[in-house]
């Protein structure tokens, strides 16, 4: 069974005269342990697709299957629960909670899931930060880390509940070349090593080509 299946997805954006058909029947599948890029020009529907897959938006038509569960008609709370358990997000900006340390930021999704004890959560968060090269900065606040380090904390946070799917929206868009390269390599390695799928929206063709598969989008459809 595929990790994610998208079938004939449609989405309109805007109201009245500005209303446009942003996604026009998109279908594809995502397999575990592989990396995918969604590439295309601005306005091609990349981010719209990513947010629909991430259950942060609702399609006008079509279906999104996470495992064997169709999610497009779930309630808000049900979609939120699916996000918590099966998805991890990395955005262009790290969005760390500045009142929390790196360790505490990584623990936030685990606290919500509520499956681990406090000690187990701490240990796991420390391991994840170690895996992204921040084992010695677990007690630092987000504001005490560099841009690249903050994004790596965000990656560790996305991995907190061992999600099957990591969704990344321009994860390197706000980083310099060296840091961008490092962050992508980290995401790619983790996805391959842990059997997780990475679906990344990127303007960067070089990074997109380093993925196992590239979906090219234009005018709301995936090009063959």
């Amino acid at each position: 069974m595929s990790l994610l299946r998208v079938e004939d997805l449609h989405r309109h954006l805007g109201e009245g005269d500005t209303r446009c058909h942003a996604l026009r029947g998109v279908s594809f599948t995502i397999e575990p342990g592989r990396t995918y890029a969604i590439a295309g020009h601005s306005g091609s529907g990349k981010s719209t697709l990513l947010y629909l897959i991430g259950l942060l938006d609702i399609p006008d038509a079509g279906s999104i299957w996470v495992g064997d569960r169709e999610t497009s008609r779930l309630t808000d709370d049900e979609r939120t629960a699916v996000r918590n358990e099966h998805m991890g997000f990395v955005f262009q900006f790290h969005f760390l909670l500045k009142e929390f340390t790196a360790l505490e930021n990584v623990m936030l999704p685990m606290r919500k899931l509520g499956r681990l004890s406090e000690e187990a959560m701490r240990a796991k968060a420390a391991d994840l930060l170690g895996a992204v090269g921040l084992g010695d900065k677990t007690r630092r606040l987000g504001t005490q880390l560099s841009g690249g380090e903050q994004q790596r904390v965000a990656i560790a946070r996305a991995l907190a509940n061992d999600p099957g799917l990591i969704l990344a929206d321009e994860p390197t868009g706000n980083l310099d070349h060296a840091n961008a390269d490092r962050v992508f390599a980290l995401l790619s390695d983790i996805a391959h090593q842990r059997g997780q799928a990475l679906l990344m929206v990127s303007h960067n063709p070089e990074l997109a080509h380093r993925c196992d598969h590239v979906f090219r989008m234009q005018d709301g459809v995936i090009l063959p």
Binding site: G54, D76, T80, N84, E85, F93, F95, L97, K112
Partner: peptide
């Protein structure tokens, strides 16, 4: 606002 959005994306419900 952004922190609320990221909390929602990582699984915190509206009630939370």
């Amino acid at each position: 606002t952004r922190e609320i959005a990221i909390l929602r994306s990582m699984g915190y419900t509206r009630a939370d």
